[in-house]
Nucleic acid binder design. Structure first.
Lengths: 241, 241
DNA sequence: GTGGGTTTCCTACTATGAGGCGAAAACCTC
DNA sequence: GAGGTTTTCGCCTCATAGTAGGAAACCCAC
């Protein structure tokens, strides 16, 4: 591989796959980072990731790198985010990095290596390379998608009460939402469905909450934008006739 | 560069920057493709692009490659789309490609090289590599963004009538929209503003149309999703108190 | 040149759906 | 029964969409 292909006219670059893994923990959105022991950026916190190997796709590469940190089965969702190519992004030499967004449901607490820890996204420690701004991109992506897709399933446990789901959305979005509206909107869209069961009354002595689940365990675009839609697709026909 | 960095543990790959350049021409959305003279995929049509050079970012690389095809000044918008990394995407050897989405306003007709031509997106010829599906990704991206941003400015001339803008939106979206709604929605959002001038009466003997322009010549997210928004951001407070 | 017809555009009215908010009802624990 | 929590319901407002009427300019016939 690469005799003709990696000629001087075809310069090649080390490529790494990075992952911004997010999870709601204790009512706050956290990102998974590991602390670099060596220069450059010794002591700073970096995104998990590593080199793209010759036979794997970027998606497979991220999954493989993440497997070294957490059980991949814990991942509820993984999607490509963006590719960074600034020649100076790594002081040791040029690299290209493709970042992914990974989400972990709130009910799992995967074991992490010694050097790896969760950090609240609104109070990140000093970050290495351009990883801080990559986390920012991931946040914007997640927050947008929470509104027009069902990504929530990747942050929530398989079954939950509306109050629990609200906590997850509040933490992920960074601002307050009412449980009433959240429930009604997600139900009307068909994103959420009642299981028929009730939550164990336990915690705080109130009316037992009903349990819900996400209708589809895969990413779906709910109804991206109700704008400029043809009447056939959008049943919002004003006139009956 | 790259002695330690491109060790066997740090495999390197040729990286190319591709561009899906779209323009509305004769009421239809077209993509700019060039016909490959040699194998692989001789005769098939491919996206413009080329190798990432050692000192440039991917964004600069796309702009440079496109400069060989069209005047870069013609580009109304350019944004990163996605990165393809399938090891088999190029039969000659592994490459990684980052695709960009470029938009050209409908009023310019840049000169193209001999091997390059515009093709309607709904009837693409045989495409090389994975370029066909990349065009599909670009289409989805454009169509989404037309609804919740002001990208339209990158497809429209600096001044236009509502009827002209409607033609552009219909072509780009692929379905019919009414001029009345388009005008009302874009005006309310503040995306569009009247110039105060009138279009030359010319074409077909009717009342001369008013001219409009996009308020901001840069990409802005209009109001992505009116969902789960805090009342402060979204002035849609029902209760007056 | 004037008047009618035509074409196009603009504006107003109306209908429907969707989200935000508040309060009452239902229910459990203590 | 008191207190707390969850659920459900109704009202309000806003945004989008359809339709119709009127206004403005062009073309053609007389």
């Amino acid at each position: 591989m690469g005799s003709v292909w990696s000629s001087p006219e075809r310069p090649a670059y080390p490529h790494q796959a990075l992952a911004v893994v997010l999870q709601v923990r204790a009512r706050r959105l956290h990102a998974m980072l590991w602390q670099r022991p060596n220069d450059p950026f010794a002591g700073a916190w970096a995104l998990p990731g590593g080199p793209l190997l010759p036979e794997e796709t970027l998606g497979a590469s991220v999954a493989r790198q993440l497997a070294a940190k957490v059980e991949v089965a814990a991942l509820g969702h993984l999607e490509q985010l963006e590719t960074r190519s600034d020649p100076d992004r790594d002081p040791r030499g040029r690299t290209v990095a493709t970042a992914y967004l990974g989400l972990i449901p709130s009910h799992v607490d995967p074991a992490l290596p010694e050097d790896t820890a969760w950090h609240p996204v609104e109070a990140l420690p000093a970050t290495a390379f351009d990883h801080g701004s990559i986390v920012g991109s991931a946040l914007r992506r997640l927050r947008s998608k929470l509104s027009y897709t069902n990504v929530g399933f990747a942050l929530a446990p398989p079954e939950f009460t509306v109050a629990e789901l609200r906590e997850i959305y509040v933490a992920a979005l960074g601002y307050d939402v009412t449980a009433t509206n959240l429930q009604r909107v997600l139900l009307r869209r068909g994103v959420l469905e009642a299981t028929g069961e009730q939550a164990p009354p336990g915690r705080s002595g109130g009316r037992p909450a009903a349990l819900y689940r996400f209708a589809a365990p895969e990413l779906e675009v709910t109804d991206p934008f109700a704008v400029f839609r043809p009447p056939a697709t959008r049943p919002a026909g004003p006139r009956g006739s």
